[in-house]
């Protein structure tokens, strides 16, 4: 692992989380802890509820049961104003990028800065250019999302997610739909941002290469038993897990 001093304090704690759409339970009894500066992978086969778990973590869906704690503070028991305050501490990169299509990249990144800081327009412009440069999109400030490629949209999504220098960054399937090289670049970006900003990263993915390259902690969701069947460093899981489901997932079913 890169030379990050891993403090073992819990940043996000999930307790007895059960997720359901109406009566249809997606996952039940999830318990795990994301430590500060972790790159935490949420993995599992398609349709096991990875993205749904992410939506619960970022406050878009309320759990059927259980708690999500940020630094010990329960998100779903907090007042709406406190929830907004907690949400401001994290940034989310959505699967499709989810850039606001009627706004340029610069406006997309600038929105949070305009809303939550007292910076002058000139300062905001500088910051926006910086964030876009960090994700390799210098000079694309005035482009609309529809004018750039899918990989660029995802990177712009990362720039927007980190506009306010959040403590936690969530990534929903960052490498889905990208060619191997773009996917690799995005992985490197996640690693570098963690190392330089010290932010905690939560990544939903089933991309094996990414999981083993960047993850240092994880949870494995199983669609059949509808609960987590493993957690910990993916590389350790690969080496030591006795569970055939986890092992076959991490070896593409070849081991």
């Amino acid at each position: 692992m890169p030379e990050v001093t891993e403090k073992n304090d819990a940043h996000i704690t999930v307790q007895d989380l059960t997720m359901a759409y109406g009566d249809f339970v997606i996952q039940r009894d999830l318990n795990f802890t994301v430590r500060r500066s972790d790159i935490f992978i949420i993995m599992g086969g398609s349709g096991c509820g990875k993205s749904t778990l992410l939506r619960h973590l970022v406050g878009l869906r309320s759990p059927a049961r259980g708690k999500v704690l940020y630094d010990g503070e329960s998100f779903w028991d907090a007042d709406p104003s406190d929830q907004v305050r907690m949400m401001r501490r994290f940034g989310v990169m959505y699967q499709s990028g989810a850039l606001w299509s009627s706004m340029t990249l610069a406006e997309n990144v600038a929105l949070a800065l305009e809303e939550y800081t007292a910076l002058r327009p000139a300062q905001i412009r500088e910051l926006v250019s910086l964030k876009l440069a960090l994700v390799g999109l210098s000079g694309f400030d005035e482009f609309y999302p529809s004018e750039i490629s899918g990989g660029m949209q995802k990177r712009a999504g990362v720039a927007r997610a980190m506009a306010l220098d959040p403590e936690i960054l969530f990534f929903d399937e960052p490498s889905a739909g990208l060619d191997p090289i773009s996917a690799r670049r995005l992985d490197n970006l996640i690693l570098e941002l963690r190392d330089s900003l010290g932010a905690t990263m939560v990544v939903v993915t089933h991309e094996l290469a990414s999981i083993l390259a960047i993850g240092n902690n994880s949870v494995f969701l199983d669609p059949i038993t509808k609960t987590m069947i493993a957690s910990g460093d993916p590389k350790t899981l690969l080496a030591e897990s006795k569970d055939p489901r986890v092992h076959s997932f991490l070896t593409r079913g070849e081991g």
Partner: peptide
């Protein structure tokens, strides 16, 4: 509706807007 499909509304919500 298109903004909902494209997760743009979710992106606003998680930004606290």
């Amino acid at each position: 509706g298109t903004m909902t499909v494209n997760e743009e509304i979710d992106a606003l919500k998680t930004m606290g807007v």
